[in-house]
């Protein structure tokens, strides 16, 4: 073999992908936490608009020792940021569990199936399949919306890749991706009466875990979970309830009218408005919600989305007591 460059040879003993535990779909830490029946915590990272890896770790720092896995969003709200793939690859190399998010808005089936192999090869254990917000709400509304898959056909495709070891085209994979498959659900928006059925459909399509959108309306969520239990879905899928601290009444109103799929009831906004320190109140509200959802049968964890308020995540988890309880007083 001629050598034109004096490069260090790459490590020939480079590790193959980790083998999942018996009965597990992936080697993901999140899956292990959920399967042993612990209350799981995932948190969303605010992706940097930067090419500097240090910015990723800066964003991940407040979540580092509290989350079981970090979600790297895929241009959420159709706003361009560093890719989920890039963030996940940086984080897994440092030993952090990640949830790669894939939205159907920007990539077609060729790109997505390739990305999934790449992500699994890098050690990403969890993938969250999303439809994605429309391009119109983002910073580049002129972009072409792809939507080749929808969240469900994407789930089924990834499950096929994992369990049948083949692309959707039928071409065989040498090593299938061992991934824990996630989907989103939004229990608080119309059609309310069919949201649980939609969840059932996602489970049928291949979802192993669910991360919900923001829940601020606990009554609606309770009804949803009741239906979920009636359908026996809580036995088939791990549900992580989505929560987050609101900054103020003003920002809550802005989110309600500008971010797709967020339902904030008026009582919550009133409560923030009356508060002397709305930021504190928002945090307290979030802790209250965590404690309430934890009591609902069929909820297996929380997914904390503290957009631009990531510094509060540690306190929220500490004060809600969820991890202290799980890990014992040793923490």
């Amino acid at each position: 073999m001629p050598a034109f460059h004096e490069r260090e040879p790459f490590d020939p003993t480079i590790d193959p992908p980790l083998t999942p535990l018996p009965g597990h779909k992936s080697a993901s830490f999140l899956e292990r936490v959920l399967r042993r029946g612990d209350f799981a915590v995932t948190a969303e990272l605010n992706p940097p608009d930067s090419a500097d890896p240090r910015d990723v770790f800066k964003a991940a720092e407040p979540l580092w020792n509290v989350a079981d896995a970090i979600n790297a969003t895929d241009a959420s709200g159709a706003n361009c940021h560093m890719s989920s793939m890039g963030i996940c690859s940086l984080l897994v190399r440092q030993g952090m569990g990640t949830v790669l998010q894939i939205s159907c808005r920007d990539r077609n089936r060729i790109a997505i199936q390739g990305d999934v192999l790449g992500a699994a090869a890098m050690g990403v254990g969890n993938i969250l399949c999303l439809t994605g917000d429309g391009v119109g709400v983002g910073d580049q509304p002129g972009a072409k919306p792809v939507f080749d898959f929808d969240a469900l056909s994407l789930l089924r495709t990834l499950r096929t890749m994992r369990d049948e070891g083949a692309f959707l085209s039928g071409r065989k994979l040498t090593t299938p991706p061992q991934i824990f498959l996630g989907a989103a659900e939004n229990p608080c928006i119309p059609p309310l009466e069919w949201r649980a059925d939609r969840l059932a459909k996602k489970v049928a399509a291949g979802a192993d875990f669910i991360q919900t959108n923001y829940i601020f309306d606990i009554a609606v969520f309770r009804r949803f979970m009741e239906r979920v239990r009636d359908m026996g879905l809580d036995e088939k899928v791990f549900i992580l309830a989505g929560v987050g601290p609101l900054a103020s009444a003003k920002s809550a109103r802005w989110m309600r009218s500008n971010v797709p799929g967020i339902h904030v009831p008026d009582e919550i906004i009133d409560r923030l408005e009356r508060a002397e320190k709305p930021g504190e109140e928002g945090k307290k509200l979030c802790i209250d919600l965590i404690q309430q959802v934890r009591e609902i049968k069929g909820v297996h964890g929380v997914h904390i989305m503290a957009y631009r308020r990531e510094h509060l995540v540690g306190e929220i988890i500490e004060e809600s007591g969820i991890l202290r309880e799980r890990l014992g007083e040793s923490v």
């Binding site: 969240a151 469900l152 989103a184 119309p190 059609p191 069919w194």
Partner: peptide
């Protein structure tokens, strides 16, 4: 979408 509503309704 061929499989139901998105989360943005």
């Amino acid at each position: 979408l061929r499989n139901g509503p998105c989360g943005g309704v």
